[in-house]
Design a protein around this nucleic acid. Structure first.
Lengths: 229, 229
DNA sequence: TGCGCTAATTTTGTATACAATCTCGTAAAC
DNA sequence: GTTTACGAGATTGTATACAAAATTAGCGCA
């Protein structure tokens, strides 16, 4: 009966959620921006029902914040939240990179190399949004290689939030994140050097964190109301 | 205008979700059981709309599994998933316990002690469901004390899933989890001994894991259909 | 009896309708 | 001129109605 492509067509809400998430990752939607249900629904040609489901998904990933009876807003991670996200990543990712190094197949390495290549391309093309997105995908891919679905899901969420954090707290004066950390990582993975991968990941995350400007200015509120509410 | 208790009354879907989660934690709902939208809605006196929202929340926490066009089922974590959950906990909780030990106030210790006392009470009363739930709350409370909201959220999710895993894979022949590990932990926290807390937590999680029967029997399917689908 | 097909029933997915709440502009009072 | 109160408009929360898909039951046939 060969059921051919098991392609279980994804539900409408997931499609909308993914599209919105992409827009947030690429910084086309800024933190604090309001996501009106009617507006979003009209854009995607779906009813408020599916928009609400999509927004709820995104809220659970902390990409949007739902305020009761007020609607959905692109999240504005506080400085504390930003630190917490990177502390969580520091706990999860180095060890996961180690596991990945021990398990990586040549195919895995190729996929990762593709990510890096595309990342460099986007960077040279000046498309920093896309470059940042691909940079995040690199981290997620490593978790996938480690064959730790649960941890990979957490890292996916953390990378998403990191994108938002970078949008808010990036110091543009710093040299771009093109620190070749990913190149070094992929080399360690290719030669199955778990210890090196673990350490490289740890330092990479620390570099990322210190490249942010995390002094206590809980983001610039757009209005007095937002500040006090 | 002093708005007094900021008690933002929670939405209907969260209420339903929390009630269902509690039922799952206390093993009143078994893994694999179907949660019909109409049925759940009738029980709580709400429409399918809010039930669907609640189920989506629970699905995101991996407490229920949503199958497209087929409905919601209480999740049946596989053996692999069970291992993954405990590996994730092994990465997150020991360090968090260390942080908690360094920050714990006397009030924090008191709250934890209450948890333990209630846990022992429930155990003596033979209410293992409640005991297990309180045992989980103990871990979550430690993450809260560490003042790491992000990690605390992850641990909350992992503890939830652990409850399901225990329901599926617990070996009843093993001596009950009343291994006094929590007593030792609270003592380490009380004297701000971070290193001890970290190590105790690590061993505690390992003990938990080894007390499960994780041989490759992906749970007993109720029917042939479930096995093949 | 056992298998396969079709149709009725049930259940989920989505859209729409109504109710509750908030926002914001206007105007009156101090 | 500033503040407060009120109400129209807009937005979200929930319920219901309809469409699409799956499950189930019944029937015919080998």
């Amino acid at each position: 009966m060969m059921q051919g492509q098991a392609e279980q067509r994804e539900s409408g809400s997931t499609r909308v959620a993914e599209s919105l998430a992409m827009a947030i990752h690429e910084h086309r939607l800024s933190p604090g921006m309001k996501l009106s249900e009617d507006e979003v629904g009209e854009i995607y040609g779906v009813s408020r029902t599916v928009v609400r489901a999509a927004l709820q998904q995104l809220a659970h990933d902390r990409l949007v914040e739902l305020k009761r009876n007020r609607g959905a807003f692109v999240a504005q991670p506080s400085v504390k939240e930003a630190r917490e996200v990177f502390e969580a990543r520091a706990l999860l990712e180095p060890r996961t990179a180690k596991s990945a190094a021990e398990r990586a197949t040549p195919e895995d390495i190729k996929v990762l190399q593709n990510h890096i290549d595309e990342e460099h391309e986007a960077l040279e093309a000046g498309d920093t949004g896309r470059a940042l997105h691909l940079s995040g995908m690199f981290h997620i891919e490593i978790a996938r290689i480690a064959d730790q679905t649960t941890i990979a899901d957490f890292i996916t969420q953390l990378v998403s939030r990191s994108s938002l954090i970078i949008a808010l707290y990036w110091q543009r004066r710093t040299a771009l994140c093109e620190s070749h950390a990913h190149d070094a990582l992929i080399k360690a993975l290719a030669r199955h050097d778990g210890a090196a991968a673990e350490e490289l990941m740890q330092h990479h995350l620390l570099d990322l964190l210190t490249s942010l400007d995390l002094r206590d200015q809980p983001s610039v509120p757009r209005s007095l109301k937002e500040a006090l509410n």
